[in-house]
């Protein structure tokens, strides 16, 4: 591909136009492939099963609101959304709180075994919850934390700690030592320094790890599936899958339920897009 400035210097207009149209074609392709299935789900929710059976790909005609209305009117749906939110917020607060404290200790204190502890956390990156769900389920069972939202939040926080520590420690280590000296002269202890100066300075990194932790918990399926057996305790992803298998003939209802379950994550994403994208790229690139 030709870089635009170079192309301007060599006025090969056709080649440049080709590149440009290729670029827009690729953009359209990516946007189309991404959006069509989502549009199908959202629009399908506005149709009846008869419409869907007659022509699965058509537009709603007439538009019906019943599917969405009945999902929004069901107390189960709201209950699952509340469960998801409770678990995700708890897991996020635990991950960030404990991760920030540990990251601070590992960044600003010198003690024997510090690198060993840090290596232990980085090794945790190799064990995502996805490969450990059965062992974690057995542990929660041992701790009598089955059916407990708190147990799931604890486990998710524990598995979220490695990435949090790995992101926060270098960030906190990069804050100049002079600041800490100045704070010490003013009578601020090291814990006071963490609370009053380090945490506000580390806000960008904290927001990133919070977003990662929240999204991870909000979307989690495997561990909640093992831990929760009673529908009243389900999270939203469990609810979507359960609704699908329970009412497999009611396609329109499934689509409405799925579309409404997408909304919180999509809203959160639009709100925090920069943080999520930046955080992913940052987490990935170190």
């Amino acid at each position: 591909m030709t870089a635009p400035p170079a192309a301007q210097r060599q006025p090969r207009l056709t080649a440049r136009q080709l590149t440009l149209s290729g670029r827009y074609l690729a953009a359209l392709l990516v946007a189309g492939v991404t959006l069509v299935p989502i549009a199908f789900v959202v629009l399908g929710g506005f149709r009846t099963n008869a419409q869907l059976n007659a022509d699965p790909t058509g537009l709603p005609s007439p538009w019906v609101l019943d599917n969405y209305r009945s999902v929004l009117g069901s107390s189960v749906f709201w209950r699952l959304m509340g469960n998801s939110a409770l678990i995700a917020v708890t897991a996020t607060v635990l991950t960030c709180g404990l991760g920030a404290a540990a990251g601070y200790a590992l960044a600003r204190y010198r003690f024997r075994g510090r690198e060993g502890v840090y290596t232990l956390f980085t090794a945790g990156l190799l064990f995502p919850l996805g490969v450990a769900s059965l062992p974690v389920y057995l542990l929660l069972r041992q701790l009598h934390l089955l059916e407990s939202w708190f147990g799931v939040a604890l486990a998710e926080a524990a598995f979220g700690l490695p990435v949090t520590v790995v992101i926060l420690r270098p960030f906190m280590a990069a804050i100049p030592g002079e600041l800490e000296d100045a704070a010490a002269v003013d009578g601020c202890g090291r814990l006071g320094f963490l609370w009053r100066i380090m945490l506000p300075l580390a806000r960008p990194a904290l927001v990133t790890v919070a977003v990662l932790a929240f999204l991870g918990s909000w979307n989690a399926y495997q561990l909640p599936m093992l831990v929760f057996n009673q529908q009243a305790h389900f999270t939203l992803p469990l609810g979507v899958a359960a609704f699908q298998s329970q009412y497999s003939q009611d396609t329109a209802g499934i689509l409405a339920y799925t579309a409404l379950s997408m909304l919180p994550a999509l809203g959160f994403f639009v709100f925090a897009e920069r943080r999520i994208v930046g955080g992913m790229a940052g987490a990935v690139k170190g």
Partner: peptide, 16 residues
Amino acid sequence: IAFTPYVLSEAITAVA
């Protein structure tokens, strides 16, 4: 737009 599917849970993706 491109990032949207990544944000949706696998459960939602699977059901859709």
